[in-house]
Design a protein around this nucleic acid. Structure first.
Lengths: 258, 258
DNA sequence: AAAATAGTGTCTTTTAGACAGTATCGG
DNA sequence: CCGATACTGTCTAAAAGACACTATTTT
């Protein structure tokens, strides 16, 4: 084959290359606002941000210092954007071993004052205990969870306001159109706990009304009863526990729901 | 602000930069196999590929010469991946002014023998007439439409087999879960034409049976009757025409379909 | 017994699926 | 009037929504 010849004559200088290739990560979780005994939870959707420190790890002034930002940073050679996202998350916040998903590329010229810098945006959806060890490190002076209803009022670095806004709509859609609600719940959960998760992104009556939702959960093909298992953490009356079944969800707009 | 200081001390050489940043485009269309008079169509899902020419535009041997590949190429400075995709598509195939969507990033080390080359994969879904002027140019010696059921048997360049496979599942999902079927149909269409489009990706009875689907199309909230308009292009009996309504589709797995 | 959450009973209305039967036209 | 496509009629079963009512527990 002629690839070797072609490679020899390939002139890398002919193309301008990016000045940087980065990853950013939007980590979402849901917190129970007030967890009283025998009460179903009231939940709120949160996003984890870092505050960019004044100096970088080598003592030089940092870009966008002091502003709130998504964790993230430069992709290393021989590393994919995905791996870099995991590494940066670990290095800046101490959060590790969570599943990330890519949802967008941000490469608008001018989005970063340092030059032509391309960012891969990722999101993650995790239960709070995955974030319990969070701790600001490296370039980050703080790590904090913000309610998505308020996060856009902060002074955000680079074009992160746009990235965060996009991430929030992806999460809303994902929560209703896939079974990721699972990630915000214990392995086994009550109808009212699932309901509380969904109510962070919708207020439709079919979900908001207890009787309707308690019945509906039994007919959802991707949820099964944990037979014989009950809990009293949400009410005095023991409540049935459910769990998610591992399956592909049929979401066709032309087919009936089965 | 201290961004100027930070910029001054920012050392670009500290990070290895990618050797290239490219875009690839998977353009899909649907062809009517045999279009007889008074017959509903039988359709097939196709993808447009180019054959990489032996020499590049400057007369040097080309990478992966002779293999079939997705149209695409290097992103120019001051251009987004999206714009680059449009430009490359125009330059290599003559196809222009179609809507592209990003669906993945391919950056696995080793995917391209020229080095660390990151590719943004895009797809497009267009009616055939948008491709009627297609013509091989630049690096491409041929442009051809392949049935998705056969395309993976070809000798494909780089990691395009993987990219194409991913693109096909994205299209299947999109066709059933969104209203993009619209793009494969004339503005006004019959139930059997929409049916033919959907049958390229499913064979569910609710869609395959005429009576069931003819009735269902009237209850779909995102499709309306073209009142009083009929055609005889699919049968001797004049057939009702329909059109898509512009609306967001509710796809929640927890809600009823309305 | 009161209060609170978790359900079930029951009714009404819609929807889905199956399949037989009717309608319309060109040739 | 045959053949082919496009429907409509009708029945049955299941699902969805509303809302009253019952069940279980702690304090």
């Amino acid at each position: 084959m002629s690839n070797e010849q072609a490679l020899k004559q390939y002139d890398a200088a002919k193309y301008r290359t990016p000045d940087g290739y980065t990853s950013d990560i939007a980590v979402f979780t849901i917190l129970s606002e007030k967890a009283e005994a025998f009460k179903p939870p009231v939940m709120d959707l949160k996003i984890m941000l870092i505050q960019r420190s004044m100096m970088d790890s080598e003592g030089r002034p940092n870009m966008e210092a002091g502003k709130w930002a998504l964790p993230g940073g430069f992709v290393d050679p021989e590393e994919s954007a995905y791996q870099s996202a995991q590494r940066e998350l670990r290095e800046e916040t101490g959060v590790d071993h969570i599943h990330l998903e890519h949802f967008g590329v941000y490469d608008t010229p001018g989005r970063d004052p340092r030059g032509w810098i391309i960012s891969n945006a990722h999101y993650a959806i995790v239960p709070e205990h995955e974030l319990s060890h969070r701790q600001a490190r490296d370039d980050a002076s703080e790590v904090e969870l913000f309610s998505v209803s308020e996060v856009l009022e902060l002074d955000l670095a680079f074009d992160h306001a746009k990235i965060i806004q996009d991430a929030i709509s992806v999460i809303r859609k994902k929560l209703l159109e896939t079974t990721v609600a699972k990630a915000f719940l214990p392995e086994e959960f009550t109808y009212s706990e699932l309901q509380a998760v969904l109510l962070t992104v919708t207020n439709d009556s079919a979900i908001a009304l207890d009787a309707a939702f308690a019945r509906k959960i039994k007919s959802l093909p991707f949820i099964e009863e944990a037979e014989g298992k009950k809990t009293t953490r949400t009410s005095k009356k023991p409540t049935q526990l459910y769990r998610f079944v591992n399956m592909e969800v049929n979401n066709s707009i032309y087919h009936a729901k089965k």
